[in-house]
Design a protein around this nucleic acid. Sequence first.
RNA 1: GGGCCUGUAGCUCAAUUGGUUAGAGCAGAGCGCUCAUAACGCUUUGGUUGGGGGUUCGAGUCCCUCCGGGCCUACCA
Length: 578
Amino acid sequence: MARHLITSAIPYINGIKHLGNLVGSQLPADLYARYLRGRGNEVLFLCATDEHGTPAELAAAKAGKPVAEYCAEMHAVQSEIADGFRLSFDHFGRSSSDQNHRLTQHFAARLADADLIREVSETQMYSKADGRFLPDRYIEGTCPNCGFDSARGDQCDNCTKQLDPVDLINPHSTISGSTDLEMRETKHLYLRQSQMKDQLEEWIDTREGWPVLTTSIAKKWLNDGDGLQDRGITRDLDWGIPVKRGESDWPGMEGKVFYVWFDAPIEYIACAQEWVDAGKGADWERWWRTDKGADDVTYTQFMGKDNVPFHTLSFPATILGSGEPWKLVDYIKSFNYLNYDGGQFSTSRGRGVFMDQALEILPADYWRWWLLSHVPETSDSEFTWESFQSGVNKDLADVLGNFVSRVTKFCRSKFGEVVPEGGTTAAEDRNSTDASAHWLFHELQERLEAYENHMDQIEIRKAANELRAMWVAGNEYLQKAAPWSTFKTDPEAAAAQIRFALNLIPFYAVLSAPFIPDAAARMLVDMKADDCAWPATVDEALTQLKAGHAFTVPDVLFAKITDEQREDWQQRFAGKRD
RNA sequence: GGGCCUGUAGCUCAAUUGGUUAGAGCAGAGCGCUCAUAACGCUUUGGUUGGGGGUUCGAGUCCCUCCGGGCCUACCA
């Protein structure tokens, strides 16, 4: 039994995430975790909320709440929604946890001891009215290059020229609108990533089979311009992890906190500690310390492409630089973006479907299936209501749901709600004469192998295609075998055909559970087969339900999305979130 | 500006990394079935692989060029 550590990029705290965020890391990570657990592996699947930084402070202020209280509330909200989507985290932690405070300060001390941190004095824009230093993009003004009047301090959205906030004409704070700004001197800690460039590059170069998206972004940062740059890891904020060198004060750094991108990945480790402290596990070090049992752990990270530089460079620099035997990531699965109906999902403009709204209108399985079968693996992909409706109705309702319905109802009407006796199926006896059953049998063997291979490789779309093809094969079998006409002349043979077909239901349920866990669970419950495990072989799996085994005809597994619903939702989610 | 990715059937995507006649699903058309959620199955229409040029016995795949889309560019996270 192999051991797998899986982390999803941690979602930012300042609001409910949209479907694009969900499909870019948490959902595929959950699919993989469920699959590996299903196959009997030991899995630790961690996620958390990313709670520090300027946007969190501003969101809290807007909500009129202390930032700690705001974050606690939003964590609870995000946690509940994650449950709603059946995201099977072993623990959903918080980057603001005590554990992360201590660990982040510990890493900073180790890096300082290794001479990988330097102090830099610099000037930054300070807003007196806001009482805070402002990140460049929170300053707006007129672009000195093109005259655009809402250019941000980091870049002009109109002419794309990179700017410095002092270049702006008539700069003002986007928070208060105040023009009372000044450049103030401040001191910050920088992680000397440039010192580690060769080490990081060698590590990247020796990773095998990583997605092009992952390695190309990493190489770009390593070699662009003057190479990998040192990175500021502290900020002048109130809310965050206080800058300390381990447990000691850091002279000159009073009142400052670590930058979120320094402490957020460390939360992956701290989260395992939270998991133990919450009483859910016994030993976090055997997952994270290669000197304490994590040698045989396979660690896989999931994230959107915007997170790649931090996971391929900054976080490994932190780990390698510490000189301690922490587990490094083995495989980084990164995703492109999901667009919404011809444009981007937009949190700020309320465009698209947000996770809470999605669950209000349809069960999690609908979203899980469509999103995962259209996950943006090779390029950006697009959500449209037409595609969603047609994908869900066709795949889930017509192909899978209706299969379950037609088999169980036919059985009930001819034999009762019990697996019928008589004849032999191709799974029970390779010498059976049911040619169509033999066809199905071989079809499923091939498809199952392909499905497992794709899931092992985290080729999600391809895996979804194979799974769907197995559902289709069940319908093909029924059409070939036609038990409704067999029954008229040879009820025993029809009984064998139906027994064979009934066995497909728990088989499908187990294989489909990573994609559609709720429907899979209902299928198993109704078939009184909740003890079914991942199939070792197809013939073994298809003889699970023996003659005489009682079951219940399931309710409709997936109601179809009507045209009226689709049009209604299309309108409702086109504009502003209410 | 620079870099990376991308462009394949009406739509969404494949194509074992240069190797037979470019394949699936959806949508469309025809036929069949009547167990089932008006569901299912079979057959079928549909392509100058964005344009042009080149390398090669052979190019969707490699090179050049043009056109379109996207992302990143280090102080949002």
